[in-house]
């Protein structure tokens, strides 16, 4: 029945043209350049690839990039949840302004974010000055890398959690409260279980954005080899030394990890939707 009705409908034109254009544009600008990276990095042989990737300085930079991104994503998962919760559930003055400001890291160029965070967290900066006596040094240390990554990946957490929180069924919470559960019990036993898939997705998105970040990090990191040098910076350093094989090898490792991550995010997102009953 459905198909007979569909047959009577006029056919929308342009399928071949638009699909063709999409494929050509995508291939020329994204797919072919990306495959060039893989072809070049494995072109000099597995052995060379392995030697480059396992060099101590490269390992240290990959550890920092992935470790700091994990930490930043974890911090954002916690505080992003609080921000999303407050924005969805409570009303207070200037709430709309705050809500709009969550997207600042999307809109502010990373280089600007980088110099601003450095000025703020440097030993003589507004916040760095008060952290210094506590023995906390942020700028020019690995902690600075984490701060920059927290900044750029915050909106991914808040914007992923907000719609899910908005659609949470409040009847269940009220039922829990009526049955004598405290606020905290309701949160841990009722809200959090419903939120897990979205929280994981938010964490993964924040991590994916943070791990490849360059602009905001290089100003605040201090960029000391083995200590506060991120992997994307090492790629640039190797490029400037005309070590193309080295640069592409690091790039290939990062690409493989990012693609794996992206596929798991896609799987997570469909899980989130089935968990939420396709609401």
């Amino acid at each position: 029945m459905v198909s007979s009705r569909a047959r009577r409908r006029p056919v929308i034109p342009g399928f071949g043209l638009t699909l063709g254009y999409t494929m050509v544009y995508l291939s020329l600008l994204v797919l072919i350049p990306l495959s060039a990276t893989f072809i070049r990095s494995f072109g000099s042989g597995w052995e060379h690839f392995w030697v480059v990737v396992t060099a101590p300085r490269v390992m240290a930079s990959l550890r920092l990039s992935f470790g700091a991104a994990l930490l930043a994503a974890a911090v954002n998962a916690a505080f992003g949840l609080v921000i999303a919760w407050v924005l969805v559930r409570y009303s207070f003055p200037f709430k709309r302004l705050l809500d709009a400001m969550v997207d600042l890291p999307f809109a502010l160029p990373t280089a600007v974010a980088g110099i601003a965070l450095t000025a703020l967290y440097a030993p003589n900066g507004w916040l760095g000055r008060s952290l210094q006596p506590l023995g906390i040094r942020v700028a020019f240390t690995p902690l600075g890398v984490v701060v920059a990554l927290i900044f750029i990946s915050l909106p991914f957490v808040v914007r992923t959690l907000q719609p899910v929180l908005e659609e949470l069924d409040k009847d269940v919470e009220q039922a829990a409260a009526t049955l004598g559960a405290s606020e905290w019990q309701t949160f841990v036993r009722v809200i959090l279980p419903a939120l897990w898939p979205a929280l994981l997705t938010a964490f993964a998105l924040a991590f994916a954005r943070a791990v490849g970040e360059y602009g905001s990090v290089i100003f605040i990191a201090g960029n000391m080899p083995m200590k506060s040098e991120i992997a994307p910076l090492l790629i640039i350093t190797k490029l400037e030394q005309y070590d193309y094989a080295g640069a592409t090898a690091i790039a290939a490792v990062m690409l493989i990890l990012s693609f794996t991550l992206m596929l798991s995010i896609n799987a997570l997102q469909s899980w989130t939707l089935t968990r939420n009953g396709g609401a």
Binding site: L34, V211, Y214, P232, M254, S258
Partner: peptide, 10 residues
Amino acid sequence: AVSPVIAGLT
């Protein structure tokens, strides 16, 4: 999903 630095590198 691609680091901007890698985009430039390609």
